[in-house]
Design a protein around this nucleic acid. Sequence first.
DNA 1: CTGTTAGCGCCTTCAT
DNA 2: ATGAAGGCGCTAACAG
Lengths: 334, 334
Amino acid sequence: MSRVTIKDVAKEANVSVGTVSRVINGEKNVSKENKQKVLKAIETLGYVPNTYARGLVSGKTNSISIVVPMIRTDFYDRLINSVDCVLIENNYESSIFPLLSEYRLKKFLEKSSILYHSDGILMSSLPVQKLFKDGVVPTEKPVVLIDMESNFYDCVYIDNHLIGRIAAKILLEKTTNLYVMTFIEPDTIFTSGVFKKRIEGFEEVLKENNLTFSSKKVFHSELNLHYALNEAMSILKRIQKFPVGFFATTDLFGYGLILAANNLNLEVGKDIFIVGVDGQPWTEDIGLTTIKQPIEEMSQLATNILLDKMNSKFSMSSRKSVKFDPLVIRRNSA
Amino acid sequence: MSRVTIKDVAKEANVSVGTVSRVINGEKNVSKENKQKVLKAIETLGYVPNTYARGLVSGKTNSISIVVPMIRTDFYDRLINSVDCVLIENNYESSIFPLLSEYRLKKFLEKSSILYHSDGILMSSLPVQKLFKDGVVPTEKPVVLIDMESNFYDCVYIDNHLIGRIAAKILLEKTTNLYVMTFIEPDTIFTSGVFKKRIEGFEEVLKENNLTFSSKKVFHSELNLHYALNEAMSILKRIQKFPVGFFATTDLFGYGLILAANNLNLEVGKDIFIVGVDGQPWTEDIGLTTIKQPIEEMSQLATNILLDKMNSKFSMSSRKSVKFDPLVIRRNSA
DNA sequence: CTGTTAGCGCCTTCAT
DNA sequence: ATGAAGGCGCTAACAG
C-alpha cells in the first residue's frame, strides 16, 4: 500500500486536505499559488490517490470492463484495440473479461464480481438474454452491447441476416448452384447465433428467387483453417456440377475453400465463386470477396455511447440502438 | 450503487454490524443461530458487500491481474484458463490486461493504474527489466512472472535455449540439411526474446557438431497461419536438396510447413522433417513432432506461488525461481 | 460469542 | 479561495 495520503500532501504543502483534493480533481477554485505548492508536494512525496477510498465516496474508477466470449480471434483483437483508442483520449483504462468458462459466468452473475467494479460495461457478441437472469446484467452501471441486438440495452450491431442476403445476391449474379459452409454453434447459453442468422438471410433470398435450398447443401467446419481445408477438399471432391457458388459464413472458410480449389485445379472466380464474411485484412492477399463488419467503427461508437452514459449525471438519456450496414468488398472470388 | 449496507443487514437480523461482518468473511466465531439470521437477512435484502469499502480497510479484492503481451494465441489462451482453474478453487477472480500498445504501457507505468487494484499480479512473457523503470513493477503487491526469468521476482519459466538444443538434436537424427522458421520479434521493449533464445540453442548444437549454419537458413513469418503457409510455400519451392529438416520455433509454423509440404507433394517424415514448439493439442491431428512447454503446470504453479505470497502476512517468504523442463512429443514429422 | 467503536483515504458540504 | 468536519461501508481491535 502506498503509505502517503492526502493528509501528508496537505502537511507538506501547508494547505488543507480540501485544497489538495480540489487540485487532484482539477477544480478551478484554487489559487495558482496553492496549486503549485500542492503539485510540488505530490511530486516530492510520490503521492498516489487511493482508488478504494475514492471509489467508496465517489463510485468512480476511470475504467471500464470489456466482456467478450473469447479472446483469440482477429475479431476481438480488433475490437479491443478500437475501444482502447477511444479510451485513451478520455483517460480511461479497460480490464478485459473473457467469458471462458461456466465458472466465470457464475462469477459474473454475482453483483459482487470485479467485472462490475468499473464505471461501465462493454459487452460483445454475448446473448445477454440467455446468459443473465431475466436478461439483466446484475449491475446499476451503464452497459452497452456490441455485435448484439437488444431491446433493453444500448447496442451497436450489424444485421447478420442482411449479410446472408447480400452474400446470396452476389453469388446469384454468378450461378444458382449454391452451397454454404458454416460453423455450427453448439446451442449453449454462450452462443449468440450469428451464423444461423446469416444462413437464414441467405436462404431467404434464394426462396425469393424461387430456388429450392436444402439443408444438404449446408456443410460445416470448425473454426480453424486445418479443419476448414480438410472439409473444403472433401466437399469439392463430391461436387459434380460446376460452376458452383459458396457462402462462407466467415472468411476462414473462404480461405479453406480457396486453398482446396487451388489444390483441385479449380479456378476461383470461374469454376467456383466464394463470398466470405468479416473483411479480414488477409482476404485481400487471397482475393476473397468478403462482407465486412465495420468492427472498428462499431467499437468506437459503442465506447463513446458508454462514456456518454457514464458521464451524464441524469440517467434519463434515451436508449440508443445503432445498426451498421455491412460493407461489401469485391475481389476476384465472386 | 447498491443501497443496502451492512448496517441494514444488521438491523434486519437484529445483530450488530460486527456479527454481520464476521458472517460475510466466514469467520467461525458466530453462533449458528445468528449466522442463519444474518444469511437470511442478506438474502431478503439482496445485500452485496461494497468492494471499495472493503478494499479501503483491508486492501483485499479477492482478485488478481494477469498481464500478457497479447491475447490471440493458443499459448495465452491456455495460460489464462489454467490460472483460472487455480483461482476457482480459491474463490478468486482475474482481470486480464493485454499490453497491446505503448499507451497501455504508459498507463501500467503509473502506480494508479487499475492493473494494481488487485491483490497480486501475474505477468507472462514480458521483459520486466526493459518495460519498467529500474526493472521494478510499480506496486507493493506481490508479482510473479511466468515464462520469463528474473533475479528479482518470483518466476516460473522454461529454458528456451534448451528447447532449441533439443530440436536440433532431434532433427540431426534425420538430416544435417537444416533450416529454421521463426518469428522475428521487433526489438522493442515489449519483446521478451524467447524466439531468439530458441534459435541460439539450436545453432549451438549445430556448432558442437561442426556444422556451419548461416543466417540465410533462417526464414521468418508472422504469427498467423495464413502468413506461415505462404512463407512455407515460398521457402520449400526454393529448396533444392532433400531431405530437409525444419525447426519451427512455434507449432504454428510447423503447421504451415506441413500444409505447404502436402501442397507440394513432399512427404512429411521422409522428404521433410519438422520439429515445432509448444505442444499445442492440434499438433496431434497433423502429426507434428513438438517440444511442449508445460504451460498448464507452469501457470498453475505460478498462480499458487502468487496466492501464497498474497496470503502470507509476513512478506519474508523467499523468492522462488522454478525452471521447467521441456517435454518432447514425437510424432511422424520427425 | 457478541456489540461497540475507531479509523481506512477521500470527497463534499458548510462555514468562513 | 480555503479549512473544518462529517460521513462513504467496512473491518478489526477491544471490551465484555
